[in-house]
Design a protein around this nucleic acid. Structure first.
Lengths: 334, 334
DNA sequence: GCCGGTCGTCGAAGCGCTTCGACACTCTCA
DNA sequence: TGAGAGTGTCGAAGCGCTTCGACGACCGGC
């Protein structure tokens, strides 16, 4: 409570025990009698003791901080990224860890620095590309790490993500069930495919494969994010494919524009064109009409990434690859 | 380079000097001969030395980490927040500091914890409300802090923000110059006003005051974020105010819907209704038509917040209040 | 040629914590 | 009844760094 900072020695004196006893009460690493424990905890509360993070890190070789590496680059969808980040912070706190935020300005040097200085115990990487420069570094780092997303060569790494291939396939299946025979996928901006970001590519692959499985005609197109570009894309698509009656949209920034474009082109949703999106729930619910969608389970992915990381920190084995099953929610648009 | 972690003692031995000499070379706190300095720096590079963050923090009572408190609550615009966050991280790195990410789940306890444990040296708070529970805590904390946004009672605090009142006024001025005589402000969702978030309220005040100054009729309305609600709001607004020809939109999620609604209601932009937005540049540029806008200078605000914080950490005096002047960019919508 | 003042370097004392080994007990079972 | 096996607690040794005071070496001024 006081302004001055309280040390473990003061707690020990207040409780009438040795410093090490206080430490063991707090860490639970040795058995302490219920009586002593209570006395110590009372003193901790009375003095408002918070262990000094630096001292703890120095002595224990654990900082209880994890790094969240978040490149913030073009074409990446920021609200989704933020929800991942929020989920990671919340989950980390449950394991008594804090989160250090790293961006890409420093390149891999930042990762090396926080790892080498023992500022962090472990790392979570977001927005992983198929050919990601950070991946080789991760392999040589002694600190454990988890990737959200998949690089081209994930062997020996620990990766978590929504199963985007299954998500793409699930959308096709859904539209096929509804009787649509010609459909299209509007995906990420082309720059995202060019960069080889995994999730976009994998959705497209899942989509394309499922076309065959379900005996449906279909095309997959990239999709830019300004209204005018979206409008043109949709207009041309409808011109080129007069029989098209179903649309899968995997691009959250564009999804509103797609609906507006359809309206403007005189197509009703879902009567003329059914639309299913791959996007977070709130975006789908907020659209008009509300969209059937495969939700991107940001919270779940974040939580899972932290859980895997903690398992690795504790030396427990973890699977290389964790794919979260897509879940389709049917709303007014199909 | 090696797997093992290198200590200052090894650097000292390698360079043939005392440990303290290495420390002084690195910190520059005592004069060291050019010769010795070079030898030490060469050894640092040769061994790949990174000072241990915990040890450094313990000995120097400075962790070189600042906390970024980011509530992530409803109604807050996530991409903007993220740009602030990115700017803060980048700016902090220039002062050799890292950024710890804190969310609101823990409430004020999280702030107290990281401050008391000396995990961080200082704090930056984002998305500050007029009546913010975190503010009283900040006042009693010994660690310096900077707020992005203004609480109701900012005396004794250090606050930075865009001058939203001036931004609101600037939009009115712009529309008045273009000859519009009846205009409206579509603001944040009502929940944001209810919470008393400063930026929304201050824009409205600036808007309302400027109406009089420029002899213009006008109303200010909150604005929800689903298409249907926006559509109704715009429709009713045009019905109630047949002479209305100018719109100020201060709501990034709604701005696309507003344009779509106007289109659907048969109003051309800017011929029938001129629209000026208060939003980040990329949103304004991506709209159709591109919007005249007062940009939200996220990078500048973030950078300024960090600069102020570093000044406070060094014991330099800083102004209580820093307002960044709005800058209006004219595009196709007015 | 001696004195005081820099300048450059060193050694050692912590910073607040964890953890290891030791030790005094109390049980248990031969 | 005494050896052996826990329990519960303590003291002390670091963890890797910063920083303080000390101390030669060298300088210019008288």
């Amino acid at each position: 409570m006081s302004g001055r900072t309280v040390t473990i020695a003061e707690v020990a004196k207040h409780a009438g025990v040795a410093v090490s006893t206080v430490s063991y009460v707090l860490s639970g690493k040795r058995t302490i009698s219920a009586d002593t424990r209570k006395r110590v905890l009372d003193s901790v509360r009375a003095l408002g003791y918070h262990p000094n993070a630096g001292a703890r890190a120095l002595a224990s070789k654990r900082s209880n901080v994890i790094a969240l590496v978040l490149p913030l680059r073009a074409g990446m969808h920021v609200p989704v990224a933020m929800r991942f980040a929020g989920a990671v912070v919340t989950a980390a706190r449950r394991y008594d860890h804090d989160v250090l935020l790293l961006t890409a300005d420093e390149g891999t040097a930042g990762i090396r620095r926080v790892a080498a200085s023992a500022l962090v115990d472990a790392l979570i990487l977001m927005d992983v590309e198929l050919d990601d420069t950070r991946v080789p570094l991760l392999r040589e780092l002694p600190e454990p790490s988890v990737l959200i997303g998949f690089p081209a060569e994930p062997a020996g790494l620990t990766c978590v993500d929504l199963d985007f291939a299954a998500a793409g396939a699930r959308c096709v299946e859904h539209l096929a069930e509804r009787g649509h025979e010609e459909i299209a996928l509007l995906g990420a901006p082309s720059v995202v495919y060019d960069r080889g970001t995994g999730f976009a590519t994998r959705t497209r692959e899942g989509f394309v494969e499922a076309l065959e499985t379900h005996g449906v005609q279909g095309v997959a197109l990239p999709c830019e994010e300004t209204f005018d570009e979206v409008y043109e894309t949709v207009r041309d698509l409808l011109l080129d494919h007069p029989g098209l009656s179903g649309l899968v949209v995997h691009n959250e920034s564009a999804v509103g524009h797609v609906l507006a474009a359809l309206r403007q082109l005189g197509r009703r949703v879902p009567d003329d064109v059914a639309v299913v999106a791959i996007c977070p729930d709130d975006v789908a619910e907020r659209a008009s009409p509300p969209l059937s969608s495969v939700l991107i389970p940001a919270e779940e992915v974040g939580r899972e990434a932290v859980r895997l990381l903690m398992d690795k920190l504790e030396g427990r084995g973890v699977p290389d690859s964790t794919l979260l099953a897509p879940q389709l929610v049917v709303r007014a648009s199909t």
